[in-house]
C-alpha cells in the first residue's frame, strides 16, 4: 500500500484502481478509513479531506438467485457452486 502511494497515487480512488481496495467483501466499510490514514501518513493530505469512492449497491452481498427473484424450489441445493475461502 505504501509503495503504491509513494508511486504517486495520492487518493482513495487512485489507490483503488491499482490495488482494488474497497472492492472486496467489506466494500470499503472496513478498509477505506485505514487506507486514508496511510495516505495521510505518506503525503500529509488529511484523512478527513480525502474524497471517498462512490458507494455501490448492494449494501451487503446478496445471492444471484435472490436478486433475480428465483423461487427457492427452482434451485436444488445439492448442485450449487462452492464458495471460496
Amino acid at each position: 500500500m505504501r509503495r503504491v502511494i509513494r508511486m504517486g497515487y495520492h487518493s482513495l480512488e487512485a489507490v483503488k484502481r491499482v490495488l482494488r481496495t474497497g472492492m472486496g467483501h467489506c466494500q470499503g466499510r472496513g478498509c477505506l478509513r485505514l487506507i486514508a490514514r496511510l495516505i495521510q501518513e505518506e503525503t500529509g493530505i488529511p484523512a478527513s479531506e480525502q474524497k471517498l469512492p462512490r458507494p455501490r449497491p448492494p449494501l451487503k452481498p446478496l445471492p444471484l438467485g435472490l436478486l433475480g427473484a428465483f423461487e427457492d424450489e427452482e434451485r436444488s441445493s445439492k448442485d450449487q457452486v462452492r464458495i471460496n475461502g
Binding site: 472486496g24 466494500q27 455501490r56 448492494p58 445471492p63 444471484l64 438467485g65 433475480g68 434451485r75 457452486v81
Partner: peptide, 16 residues
Amino acid sequence: MVRLVPKLAGVKVLRQ
C-alpha cells in the same frame, strides 16, 4: 445469469 447457469443461484453479488 442464473437462467444460463442455474448452479450460480447461491453465489452472492458484491458490487454493481
